[in-house]
Structures are given as structure tokens and as C-alpha cells.
Computed example of a mutant assay.
Amino acid sequence: MSAAIRLDKHLVALIKCSRGEAQKYIEGGWVLVDGVIVDQPQFKILEQKVELHADATLTAVLPRTLLLNLPEGFDVSSPIAPLQLITPETHTQDDRSGIRVLKRHFARLTPTTPIEPGATGLMVFSQDGKIVRKLVEDAKTIEQEYIADVSGDIDPNGLQKLNAPMKQNGWLLPAAKVSWQSETRLRFALKNVHSGQIRFMCTSVGLTVVTMTRLRIGRVSMGKLPPGEWRYLPEDKWF
């Protein structure tokens, strides 16, 4: 029986390339072992069939940003807890980014822009330092959009109050843009969101939040992404 060898070493012999080129092909997701993408150069093979994709290039693998639709009932007290929901199996079939799923895309993901406690909807995890810095440094100016289903009777001039600056635990909250979407649903567009802010605002005018969903961060919206699934941020999109 032949001894197992590293995938990159086997590829060097197979296509007559350098070791460095072999590693770039593998890390780029261009090498298939028995029809399955393997992006680890150190992967050991024996008698498996190894193929190089016909469209293979030596372009460097870019850091990626993943968008998750956080489902109902998930505890986000730990910002990294939702990472367990991001797997190859939960990648939405309707991802139109054209980006191929690689194992390396699940490593070193940084959670950004915390979601309101108890809310569902859009969460962002990124390997891209530029995007992480953008979302952290510009948090005060990047608008977030939520919808909240509410119960109760709103106070007189309650909608006007919701659109005016409020104080929460001594913090002056910037004015929000709040409007009715239906008899029981409010839309919130806010910047520099403080934890618990939407529930606080609603309680202040006699309303109780029943459910809450984040739809958008900056220019990036969740779209029709199903709950519990994720997709890639396309290369031409920016927050």
C-alpha cells in the first residue's frame, strides 16, 4: 500500500507546478479530491482522484464577510455564539455572490454591529479588517433598520416622541426615524444604537415590543435570506 502524501506535494507531481503554486491552487478552492473541494495543502491522500478545476487561477484568496439571518430564540449574550449557526450546510442556496464556499471562510470571523437583545435578523461576521474597522469606527453614523411588532396603546403624540431625542440611562439618544408600517408594526431607522434602545423607546410611549427584526445595516440589507441561513457579502457591496 502506498504511503499517504500531502495534497500539495501530489499536485506538484500531477500538474508540474511549484510547491507555492500548488498551495495557492488548493487554498483557492480549485483542487478537488474525489469530486470534493479540499482547500488544505496538508491534507493527506492515498488513492483518491485529484483534479484541478478547469478555471483555476493563482489569485490570492480574499477575506470574506458573511451575513446571517439570526433565527428566533437564539441567545446573543455572547457575540460569537451565533457563529455555530454558520456552516457549509446552512449556506443559502440563493446566494448570488458567485463566491465558492471554502473552509477557510469560517476561520477568524469577527462579529460586528451587535444586534438588539431578543431581536432576530441581520448579523455580520467578517474576516476583512477594513470592514470590521468601518463598522466599529463609523458606528455613530451608520444607520440600522429594524421592524418591531408591538402591543398596547401608544401615548398621545407618542410617534412624535419616538422621533425626538430621548435619554436612556443618562445617555442622550440621537433622534430616530420611526414610522408605522401597520397597526401593530413600527419601523425604526437609528444610528449608534444602544443595547435595549428600541424596547426602552417603545416602553416610554406605552408600547410593548412583541418581536423585533433587524433588516439593514448601512447599505447592506438582509433581503430574502431565510432564518438560520447565511450568504456572502458580494465583492461590489459596501456598508
Rank of each mutant, 00 (worst) to 15 (best):
M1T: 02
S2W: 01
A3N: 04
D8C: 14
L11Y: 07
L14Y: 05
G20L: 08
A22Y: 06
K24T: 05
I26L: 07
D34N: 15
I37Y: 01
Q40S: 13
F43G: 02
E51Y: 04
A60Q: 08
L62S: 12
P63Q: 01
T65V: 09
T65N: 10
L66R: 05
L70I: 14
F74G: 07
P79M: 11
A81K: 15
Q84K: 15
T87W: 11
T92M: 12
G98F: 14
I99L: 13
R100S: 15
R104M: 06
F106M: 09
F106Q: 08
L109A: 09
T112H: 05
G118I: 02
F125A: 09
F125D: 09
Q127S: 11
K130G: 03
K130T: 08
D138E: 14
K140C: 03
E143G: 04
D153H: 06
I154T: 05
P156F: 11
L159D: 00
P165K: 04
K167A: 07
L173K: 01
L173R: 01
P174N: 12
R185H: 03
R187Q: 15
L190H: 03
V193D: 03
S195Q: 14
Q197C: 03
Q197A: 06
M212C: 14
M212H: 04
R214T: 07
G218P: 11
S221H: 12
M222N: 08
M222D: 07
E229F: 12
E229W: 10
P234W: 12
K237P: 00
